[in-house]
């Protein structure tokens, strides 16, 4: 007979990837899923939950709490019934401190944004998030891998085989691309171009985010781009320190949100979790333009079985509706 265990579900729905984890009460990973969002966050969450159920088929886990994070955190919170909805900066910091308790610097590069988080004694003291620049994110690497015809998974190996990275302009993805094409047309090795690209990305990241911040060791590198060993090598070369890539680097946001749910310390049955059955429900989303004033806000409506589950998007708040399933905060001393 399977032993019934307590678990905490963490879901991180980002622009590019959707990650789910289940932790036990000591915050160890029982199961983890990493999949693409493909522009359909609700579907991604539902499919992700199905995959997670499959992965965990040999275990009997009772979900005691659920946390949601990522840019679709509010949507996710409504769909699954989250106990805590938290921004991804805090979630990533929490997860990093769990893996390396005395971590001082967290480098995180995802699909559409990158973050730098500074901690001291386990407390986030500073952070930066890129806002206007695509050159410092995973999407740009993705785009270049398609252009070069080399799968993104192999980018790291190519970069590791280089011993003299080509200089690629890193300030702007447009300059970077034209620089890469130039190097390629004059006959530079593809390995050197790829490693050069990693350097450009690392430089861009550090220039944009680390302004005046003291980057102390231990340094953790997480997010989808940490899969690229070339990026780790480039960061180590640029920073001159050892960079640690945690085992679950790709699902750290989800781990962080599960830890936050765990910390709520809910009683059995107290969770708002709607159960794994939400994978079978048919969620309909629609948008309409509110003509109440000249702001003409686009309001999103999510319905399930003809009933409106949630609504948001207006500037004024009159359409805001969440069926009480998301307890945004819980008071704790």
């Amino acid at each position: 007979m399977k032993e019934r265990r307590t678990g905490y579900l963490g879901i991180d729905v980002g622009s590019v990837s959707t990650n789910l984890v289940i932790l036990d009460e000591r915050a160890s990973v029982l199961g983890a899923i990493y999949r693409r969002t493909q522009g359909q966050p609700i579907r991604a969450v539902q499919e992700g939950l199905k995959e997670l159920t499959a992965v965990m088929a040999d275990q009997d886990v009772e979900i005691r709490g659920v946390g949601a994070t990522g840019s679709a955190r509010h949507l996710t919170g409504v769909i699954v019934g989250a106990d805590i909805v938290k921004n991804e900066i805090t979630a990533h910091a929490v997860a990093a401190s769990q893996v390396i308790p005395d971590v001082n610097t967290v480098l995180e590069i995802g699909g559409q944004d990158s973050k730098l988080i500074i901690l001291r004694d386990g407390v986030v003291t500073d952070f930066a998030m890129n806002s206007v620049c695509a050159a410092g994110t995973g999407s740009f690497l993705d785009h270049q891998s398609t252009r070069l015809g080399i799968p993104i998974e192999e980018f790291g190996d190519y970069a590791l085989r280089s011993d003299s990275p080509a200089h690629i302009a890193g300030r702007c993805s447009v300059f970077a691309e034209s620089d890469m094409i130039h190097k390629q047309q004059v006959g530079a090795r593809v390995e050197d171009i790829i490693y050069g690209l990693c350097h450009a990305l690392a430089r861009n990241y550090l220039n944009n985010l680390s302004k005046g911040k003291e980057l102390l060791e231990p340094t953790v590198f997480q997010g989808g781009v940490a899969a690229n060993a070339g990026m780790k090598r480039a960061f180590e070369a640029e920073l001159g320190v050892e960079v640690v890539v945690p085992a679950y680097y790709h699902v750290m946001g989800a781990i962080g949100s599960a830890i936050l749910a765990l910390e709520l310390d809910l009683e059995p049955g107290e969770t708002s979790f709607k159960g794994f059955e939400v994978t079978d429900l048919n969620y309909e989303t629609s948008t309409f333009i509110c003509d109440g004033c000249s702001n003409t806000c686009e309001v999103v409506r999510i319905k399930v079985g003809g009933k409106t589950l949630a609504r948001w998007g207006g500037r004024c708040g009159k359409w805001e509706l969440q069926d009480g399933t998301v307890r945004k905060t819980k008071v704790k001393a």
Binding site: G122, S294, C316, K318, T329, V331
Partner: peptide, 29 residues
Amino acid sequence: DLLWARRRGRTVSTPPDALNREPVSPCHE
């Protein structure tokens, strides 16, 4: 979150229940 953490001296802390208040329509027009 960061500001609360600095006050409390730890990051994993949830802010007070300011967000639990019932929203009312603040639309001006």
